[in-house]
Design a protein around this nucleic acid. Structure first.
Lengths: 159, 159
DNA sequence: CCTCAAAATGTTATACTATTACATTTGATA
DNA sequence: TATCAAATGTAATAGTATAACATTTTGAGG
C-alpha cells in the first residue's frame, strides 16, 4: 500500500509522469484524451486537493475551453471512468488519481483544515468492509472509503 | 460486528425500539426530540433505505410540519449530530441509524437495484484505513465507508 | 410567576451541484 | 468519400443545500 499526498515530493515530476501514463493508457485502450480532457486532468493534477466541478469549469472557461456545466461534467466523467480521477463523495469534488494504472480501490485521507487529500490503495473489500459484506451475502461492486481529519502539518500547526 | 438491513426482521418492533431508545437518549443528554424531529426520525425508520432531504420534506409538508428546505435539513442535522441518523454520501441521502446507542463508525452496504441499505459497525479506523492513516501521520475524526453493489435478494433475482 | 437568553421554528431568497435534451462538429473507418 | 459513433456547444432545468433574518417557544434563574 502506498499513500500519496501529504509528504513533500517533486510535484512537477509527479504531474508530468502521471500525464504521460494517462496518454499511454489512452493509446493502449483506444481512449481519446482530447484537449479539454487533457487540460482537465492537468488542472486536477496541479494540486493534491479536490476541486469542485465548477472550480474546474471556471479554469476551463478562462481558457476558452467551454463555458457550460456539461463541459466540466463530461470531462470529469471521462477521467473518472478511465480511472484517471476520483470523485470525493464527502466533498462533492474531484481529484486526480495518484496511482494511475495501479489503482484498484482507492481510499482517501481528507484534511479538514488545509483541504489536501491523500490517496491510499487499501483494498477495503478484503478488509473489514469485505468481512461485513460476506457476512451479509452482499456483492460489492464499488467502494467509497474516505476519512476526514487533520493531516500531519495541520496537527503541528494546531499544537 | 452486526449488520442490519437485508435480513427479514420484525420491523414494527425495530422501529418502535429505536424510537424509544432515541427518546431515552434525548432525556439523558438534554436533547429535545421535538415533533418535527421525532416525526423525521419515524419517517426515516420506516424503511431501511436512504431518503433524500426533499423526500423527507415532502412527507413533512403533507403533514403540515413545515414546507421549506431548512425544515428538513435542520431535522436531519439534529438527527445526524445526535447519532440517530447518518448521511449516505454516495447518494446524498439520509438513513436512520440501525445501531442506536452503540454506533461508533458506521459502514454501509448499498444495493444499487432495490436501494436498500444495510448498516454494519466495522470500526474502520482500526482496519486498513487506520493503517494507512497511521502510516501517513493522519488523525482521523470521521470516516465514510460505503460499498455499492447487490444485496442477496437482488443477486438471486438477477440469476 | 416573570424575565431573559438560548434554542427552535417560519420564511424568503439564493448558492451550489448535476443532468436532460438537442443541435452541431469531428474523426475513424468501410 | 460516405457514414456512423463519439465528442462538443448550448440552453434549460432538476436536485441538493445554506444564508440570513424575523418570530416563537422553552426552560433556567430570579
Amino acid at each position: 500500500m502506498s499513500t500519496i499526498g501529504f509528504e513533500p515530493h517533486d510535484h512537477q515530476r509527479c504531474v508530468a509522469g502521471t500525464l504521460s501514463k494517462a496518454e499511454k493508457q489512452c493509446a493502449e485502450n483506444g481512449l481519446r484524451l482530447t484537449p479539454v480532457r487533457r487540460r482537465a486532468l492537468e488542472i486536477l493534477l496541479a494540486e493534491h486537493r479536490a476541486l469542485g466541478a465548477y472550480d474546474l469549469l471556471a479554469v476551463l472557461a478562462e481558457e476558452g475551453l467551454g463555458a457550460q456545466p456539461p463541459v466540466a461534467y463530461r470531462a470529469l466523467d471521462f477521467l473518472v471512468k478511465a480511472g484517471f480521477a476520483h470523485k470525493i463523495e464527502a466533498l462533492n469534488a474531484y481529484i486526480a488519481c495518484a496511482h494511475l494504472g495501479t489503482c484498484q480501490t482507492p481510499a482517501f485521507l481528507i484534511c479538514r483544515s488545509c483541504k489536501s487529500v491523500a490517496e491510499a490503495d487499501t483494498a477495503p473489500a478484503s478488509g473489514r468492509l469485505g468481512d461485513a459484506a460476506r457476512a451479509a451475502g452482499f456483492q460489492i461492486e464499488r467502494t467509497v472509503v474516505e476519512a476526514q481529519g487533520l493531516c500531519p502539518a495541520c496537527q503541528k500547526a494546531a499544537a
